[in-house]
Design a protein around this nucleic acid. Sequence first.
DNA 1: CATGAATGAGACTTCATTCAT
DNA 2: TATGAATGAAGTCTCATTCAT
Lengths: 198, 198, 198, 198
Amino acid sequence: MAAPAPADKRRVILDAAVRVFAQQGFHTCRVADIADQARVAYGLVYHYFSSKEEILDTLFLERWDVMLEAIAEADAQQRTPREKLYAIAAFIVDSYRHDPELMKVIIVEVTRAANTFGRTHLAKIREAYDRIAEIVRRGQADGVFRQEIDPPFAALAFYGLVEQVLTGWIFDDEPPGELELERAKTLIVDTICRGLDS
Amino acid sequence: MAAPAPADKRRVILDAAVRVFAQQGFHTCRVADIADQARVAYGLVYHYFSSKEEILDTLFLERWDVMLEAIAEADAQQRTPREKLYAIAAFIVDSYRHDPELMKVIIVEVTRAANTFGRTHLAKIREAYDRIAEIVRRGQADGVFRQEIDPPFAALAFYGLVEQVLTGWIFDDEPPGELELERAKTLIVDTICRGLDS
Amino acid sequence: MAAPAPADKRRVILDAAVRVFAQQGFHTCRVADIADQARVAYGLVYHYFSSKEEILDTLFLERWDVMLEAIAEADAQQRTPREKLYAIAAFIVDSYRHDPELMKVIIVEVTRAANTFGRTHLAKIREAYDRIAEIVRRGQADGVFRQEIDPPFAALAFYGLVEQVLTGWIFDDEPPGELELERAKTLIVDTICRGLDS
Amino acid sequence: MAAPAPADKRRVILDAAVRVFAQQGFHTCRVADIADQARVAYGLVYHYFSSKEEILDTLFLERWDVMLEAIAEADAQQRTPREKLYAIAAFIVDSYRHDPELMKVIIVEVTRAANTFGRTHLAKIREAYDRIAEIVRRGQADGVFRQEIDPPFAALAFYGLVEQVLTGWIFDDEPPGELELERAKTLIVDTICRGLDS
DNA sequence: CATGAATGAGACTTCATTCAT
DNA sequence: TATGAATGAAGTCTCATTCAT
C-alpha cells in the first residue's frame, strides 16, 4: 500500500536537466548526464523529448510563460508604475531564490545564446521587454515618468539591471542571503527610477 | 609596387575567428571554418594557437585590456563622474560601431558564459565593474551622486544597461544607424544618472 | 534451429583486435580497422573500451593471467624442476599453436614495448619471471640444479629462449609444423638444463 | 681563435635521436623533439634525413654493422667456441655500458618490432644469428659442443639470453653497476654452455 | 513505457613533410 | 646549409540519436 514512486518521468528528466545544464552548461553536458542525474534509462530521454535542444526549449518556455503572466498580473493591478516594476523585480528575484539553477539556465543558456536559442525565442523574450516598456509608457502618460527616455530603452535598463544582478549571483561562489535578495528588489527599482544623481 | 601581402597570419586568423564566432557561435563553428575564413591551412591555426579556446581567450583579453585602459583613462581626466561614465559608454558604443562582430563575440561567448569563459575570465571582467564602481564611489564622496545606492550595484546598473543595449543591437536584424549610436551614449548616462522618475 | 548469433560484441571486438594488432601492429592500425574486422560500428569499440590502449591491456591481462595460472599449476605438481620447466614451455608453445596471433601481439606489442605497455605491466611480467626463478631456486635446494647461476638469471635464460623461439616463428614466413612445435618444447628445456657443452 | 663548434650536424641529430627514441619511443616522439634535443632547426632534420624512419634505420645499421664486425672478429681469433661466445657477449654488454640508450633503441624499436623495422632489417638481424650458429656448428664439429642441439637453436638461446639481460636492465629503474655488467658476461656464457643441471 | 546496446558522422588535434627564404 | 612557417592528411575519441527487445 506504499505510495508508488511519483514516476512522472518527463518531469523528472526536466528537473534533472536543469541541474545538469546549470552545472555543466548546455553545450558541455551530454544527454547521458541528464539520464544519469534523472536516474532514468538513456533512451527514455528520447521517448519524451526529440532532442537535447527540445529539453532546453521546454524549460525556457515553461518558465518564461510564467514570467510573462507575472508581468501581466503586475501590470493589471491598480498600482503605480513603480510598484509594478517592483512586483516584476520581486518576481524574478523570488524565482531565483526558489530555483537558482533554473534561472541560471534560462539566463545563461537561452537569453544570452544569440546564435541559437536566443534567436529562436527572440519574440518571446522581447514580449517581456515590450510589456515592461508598456508600463513605462503609461507611467510617462501619467506624468510619473519623464518623457526623455523612450520606453523600450527604459525597459532595457530595467531588465538589464535585473539580469546583471542575477548574473552576479550566478557567478558568485556563495549564494545571496535573504537580506541581499530583498534589498536587491528595492535597489533595482530605486536605481532605475531615481538614478544615481543626488 | 603593389602592396605586399599582410602576411601576419596570426592576426589574419584572429580576425577570421571573430567573424566565424560571431556568425556561427563558438560551440557551433569548427576550426576548419576559421581556417577557411582566414584562407589558411588547417594546421596553421594550431601553429599559432594551442586550441580553439585559446583563440577566444586571446580575442577577449586583447579587447578587454583595451577597455580597461579606456576606463582608466576616462577616470584619469578632470571630469565630472557623469562625464566619465559618458566616456566609458561612448568607448564601448564606438567599439561596437567599429567592430560589431568582435563585441558580439565578447559579450555572447565570454562575458555571459557563466560555465566556461566567463568563469575563466571572471577576475578580468570584475575589474571593469570595480573601476566603474570606483568612479561612482568618488561621485558619492563629491556629493554628485546620492549615497543610497552602493557603488558595486551602481556599476551593475551601468554596465548592465550598456550590455543590454549592445545585446539589443546584436539581436536586431538591421544594424543601428549613426544617430542611434550617438543617442544611445547620451541615453545610457541620462537613464543611469537621472533615472526614470520625472 | 540455426545457431544463434554469438552477439557478445565485446568478445568479438577483442578477437578482431588480436588479428588487427598482429597483422598491422598496434601503432600502425586504426581503431576503424578493428571495428571493420569485427564487423561492428565504430562507436561500439568505445562503448566497451575507453581507448585503443585499453583493448591491448585487456588482451594482455587476460592471457597473462592464464599463463601465471599455468605456471602455478606446473609448479604445484609433484614433478622434477625440469618437468616443471617443460610444462611451462609446453604451455607457451601450445598457446602459440592455438592462437599465434594473440601470442604475437603479447610478445611484440606488450612484453617488448619498454616505453609504454611494457612499463605499465612490468610488475605482471616480472611475476612470471619470479615464479620461474622460484622453481629454479627449489631445484637448487634439491641439488638438481647447480648453485652457480642465481635463479633470477636462470629465469631470464629460460624465458628469453622461449620468447626468442616464438619470435623466430613470428618473423618466419611460414608457420612451424607440429613436429617443430613439439621438438621446440624438448629442445628448450634440454638447452637450458644441460647447456651446449658436450 | 676559439675552436668552432664541431658542427657535424648530421651526427648531432643522430645522437639526439638516440636519446629521444630511448626516452619517448619511436612512435611517441615527434620529429620536433629530435630537432629540439639537437638544438637544431626543425627543417634541418629533413635536410639530412628523408624521414623519421630513416633516422632509426641509420642508427640501427650503423650499430648493427659494428656488431657484425665484432662477431666476425671474435670468430676469427684462435679461441675456443666458448671464448668466442664470451667475446660476443662482452661486446654487447660493453655496448650497453657505453651507450645504454642506443642499445635500448636498437632492441626495443628495431630488433623486436616484428611488423615494422624488425621485418625491414630481418636479413641483417638474422645474419648475426647465423654467425653465432656457425660458431656453435664448428664447436660441435670440434666435439666441444654436443650434437643434440642444432646450431640455429643454440644461437637463439644465446642471443635470447643476452637480449633478455639487456632488457632487464632497460626496464630497471637503476642502471647496472660495473660488477653486475662483468658478472653478466660470465654468467651468460656459463649458463648457455653448461646449463642449469648440476 | 522502458532499456541500453548500437550506430556513425563529425570534431579536435597532431605531426610528418614541404617549401620559400 | 639553415630556418621555421605552412600544409593537410589522418587518427582518436565523442556523443546525439536510433532501434531492437
